[in-house]
Design a protein around this nucleic acid. Structure first.
Lengths: 238, 238
DNA sequence: AAACATCTTTCTTTCGAAAATCCTGCATGC
DNA sequence: GCATGCAGGATTTTCGAAAGAAAGATGTTT
């Protein structure tokens, strides 16, 4: 490569296209780019210090993941958000993960159980460390929390035996983050909901091999989150 | 564009990237490229008369659609096929489309019913025109038949109200075609299965608003296809 | 002969410029 | 006044070449 202005960031061993993909996805999910905003290539080139080709490759991938829209000779734009889409994401995610959870409960072995317990514990510690403080969470703290959160949900469905279900779950998770993160950045209505308790209930039902109960609890978990987000979205922008 | 060697094909109004995407996808699904085969860019450039950029964009899209594999600095290859993957596709498709069918049955209006009847009729005509002949179907005939077939299945779930479910259904359909088309090219065990009757049963249950029955029939429909493919795959290459 | 380093070749990836297209504002004609 | 057509600029898309990395070949040492 011609230029090598290493800004000392610990991500050297990626291709430019992969870097573009990650940064773009991260910036879209974090809401740094507004929904609907056009993603001009010159702008992105300057922002990320990359050339057109890797940017376009990343945008094409993100297009099929529903994070960006592509119009034939009119370039790309951030996929819009709406309450309808938010419900579609969460309901689809519920469908996928409930099925995956059921299958995991059927097939899960000792490692699966251990993975769930470990992930729950790690998430629980993180919550206790950050939540009771009551202050606004920094971006890094929120990010660390969200990683633990996802790892717990991933542990639940780890033994479903279907690459596609796990993959879809991951993709739908990314999409939900577009709605969750802005909602969490705003003031969370404290006390109205004990997320940690919901997690524990789901874990208990899974370990007790009660598939029906676990699925119901998981679906309710996602539904409550969606309702919270809807409440925050409704008064404000459509 | 510099070169303009229009080969008189009726597809002028696409970008090169879109053309690359369609042709690549079509060639992979039709089995013209072997599963696992490396997709060298120079080879593709010559084959399609396109440059690297649009090809890479297409390959990146196909990567997220599970039709091609991408290795970091080692290029692309056709995604491999296996009996396990085949079952994963059909089971995931069953999950998605059964849910979409149920919702369509709940919400479907007159247009929805009319669409199903029309699509069934068109498919039925096509089958009657081609099937009783008993001879090998040409590529074009098979392709026309498959389009009708998909349109029928799409009509069933048209009113599910979820963009994501319809989209997933389409993508999973493309994946299943990778297994169905080679199986259909080989000698189909005639008489062991009346696909047209299965379709009629599904349609009847849907129009009768019997969601449970329709879902069971649809799932069985896909399961039988998978079993037929498995029987054809097993004796031969893994 | 095996292990290792180095060179060569092959292929991917990235770049920057050229070409094609779209959009905007303005003038022209009805 | 309103539609229509036409420059000019902005933006996307495509191209071909250059740079970079992996795989393979060659030769050297133990």
């Amino acid at each position: 490569m011609a230029s090598h202005e290493e800004t000392a960031s610990p991500e050297a061993s990626f291709t430019a296209a992969e870097t573009a993909y990650r940064k773009l996805r991260s910036d879209i999910v974090a809401g740094i780019f507004e929904p609907g905003q056009p993603l001009r290539l010159e702008f992105l080139r300057q922002r990320y210090g990359l050339s057109f080709s890797p940017l376009r490759e990343a945008l094409n991938r993100l297009q099929t993941e529903r994070l960006v829209l592509a119009a034939a000779l009119r370039g790309f734009s951030v996929a819009p958000v709406s309450i309808e889409e938010m419900w579609d994401v969460t309901e689809t995610r519920s469908l996928i993960e409930c099925e995956a959870l059921k299958r995991s409960i059927d097939r899960g072995d000792d490692d699966w159980e251990a993975g769930i317990v470990a992930a729950f514990h790690a998430l629980d510690l993180q919550v206790r460390r950050l939540a009771p403080v009551g202050r606004e969470l920094s971006v890094d703290e929120l990010s660390a929390l969200e990683i633990r959160h996802q790892e717990f949900h991933r542990a639940l469905i780890a033994k479903c035996g279907s690459r596609r279900l796990i993959n879809l779950s991951d993709q739908l998770h990314v999409e939900t983050q577009r709605y969750r993160l802005p909602a969490l950045a705003g003031k969370m209505p404290k006390g109205t909901r004990d997320v940690a308790f919901e997690h524990r209930q789901i874990m208990d039902a899974a370990l007790a091999r009660d598939a029906d109960k676990a699925q119901d609890l998981l679906a309710a978990h996602y539904r409550r989150t969606a309702e919270m987000i809807e409440a925050q979205m409704s008064p404000r922008s459509g």
